[in-house]
Design a protein around this nucleic acid. Sequence first.
RNA 1: GCCCCUGUAGCUCAGAGGACAGAGCAGGAGCCUUCUAAGCUCUUGGUCGGGGGUUCAAAUCCCUCCGGGGGCACCA
Length: 556
Amino acid sequence: MVTTRFSDTIRIAVRGALTAAATSGALPPLDDVEFVVERPRDRANGDWSVNVAMTAAKRVGRPPRDIAAVVVEHLGAVPHLGRVEVAGPGFINFTLAPSWYHDVLRRAALGGPDHARSDAGAGERIQVEFVSSNPNGPLHIGHGRGGVIGDVLCRMLDYVGHPVSREYYYNDAGVQMDRFAASLEARYLQALGHDAAMPEDGYQGDYLVAWGAELAAEHGAALVGTPEGTARIRAWGMARAMRDIEETLVLARIPFDVWFSELDLHRDGRVGAAIAVLRDRGYVYEAEGATWFRTTAFGDEKDRVLVKSDGEFTYIAPDIAYHLDKFQRGFGRVINIWGADHHGYIPRMKAAVAGLGFDPDRLEVLITQTVNLTRGGEPVRMSTRAGEFVTFREVIEEVGVDATRYFLAAFSPDTAMTFDFEAARAQSMDNPVFYLQYAHARMCSLVRFAGEQGVVRLPLDDVDLTVLTHPAEAELLRQIDRLGEEVAEAAARRAPHRLTGFGQEFATSFHRFYTDCRIVTEDPATTQARLWLVEAAKSALTAILGLLALSASETM
RNA sequence: GCCCCUGUAGCUCAGAGGACAGAGCAGGAGCCUUCUAAGCUCUUGGUCGGGGGUUCAAAUCCCUCCGGGGGCACCA
């Protein structure tokens, strides 16, 4: 279903007016003049506003308001258009006729939460890789932020017409896994009463003490002191970590389509193959006993090692193979969501994509800034490799998945946010997530109440929508109309937090409508029309909650 | 030293060139015998870190300075 955007209609009409004005000699030719069609902040300025008179003023050499007046004179007939006015410094303001909003209501009420889906993405296939935490410990709140942002982004991209593949890439090979395995083995031995020392650079987290004890309880001393035992400890640890990660992601409502293993790349020889591609294209050389990738050819500050002097691949080598695989699978665009600590890695990865022969602009990296987790004013450390930390799972279990998701989604990825335990778990009006959910529960309650009162609903075609004249009704209809464009905008800008912001505005307009307009009244015509308006609003709000993956309960 | 993010109301944050800079919370004053008051209305509060520049128009773009946060491995 493709939503009609009135802004497109206006753009076409204004272009037509410019052409007509040029033909009549009222204005010089302005075919290539740029202008925007936007929703004015202040409602008094109409539903849509065009700034063409200002952008063309210099070329035309006349005051913007004069130009605007000429454009308005040459405007042809536009369906659903109510009023056109020149205002302020020269804006042309368009107010839509009620008939437009009646169509909006019908589309939303009958189309359900999917009514505002669009083909804005033009079917471009997008792969989104996010979370991608290594299987060496539980997820922390930073992973949670990337996870929620990635998840909401994927839901929005899908809504606006992009086929999306959500992928989790995990490094189940390499030095970090060695350290993890050695640390687990030490904890295991300690659990059995041995005096085992933790390795240098080992993982100090308490969870490994617990896992060592689990391992000891499951296998007793059977894995002590043999190479096979060590290998089994490693495999057990990895599986244990992955199980914990997957369970946490399920709790957080963050599904994945593809789980991509680094080890698979090694097993199939694809890491070497990717390096061979770079080598064939002339970007690989040997020096100081290592194999280097000439990333400086693509603007990186220094070349990077692909194969260490000890013969092992560096971490970037399998990453290059993975990205080669992504583009070979035919995605038009690839989005990686990384924590702020990886920002320095972007030029390298872009260089890799370019070196492999693909347009580096097809790789987008969305950086999420840090999350400072506080509990009663006490900052909580979040390093996987050192010390204690509160896991993402613990946050969800204590705060609840709805509030956790809401808070993590509500801030711009660029903002270093503080997630306050006490504030987020507050079951109070301080908590904006309830504001949205309360609006939904109220909508459900209204429909229930109408039924209890014996209101027999008429088919929408038999309902007179012209009785919807209250300002609160008009405002709610405008908000419903905005849904599709807001999602498209948030998706295109990779800005999920815009959706929580829109959700708040939407809920506000509904709560105001509820307060100002009695829905179930003695007047049958008003009751029928308002109940359909509630249905339309419910479609839109359900869509918003669905995109944020927040529960939409019928009662509170 | 270089790179990234950031500085907007008392607090937490929106605002990717447009009209008088917004929201929530906090502060003040009101609204429930009728559909959920987890709601609504009104109100106090700003040199958009400072200074230059570009533009008809700058919180927004450019330069510069100052203050926070993070990153600069043959670790991932």
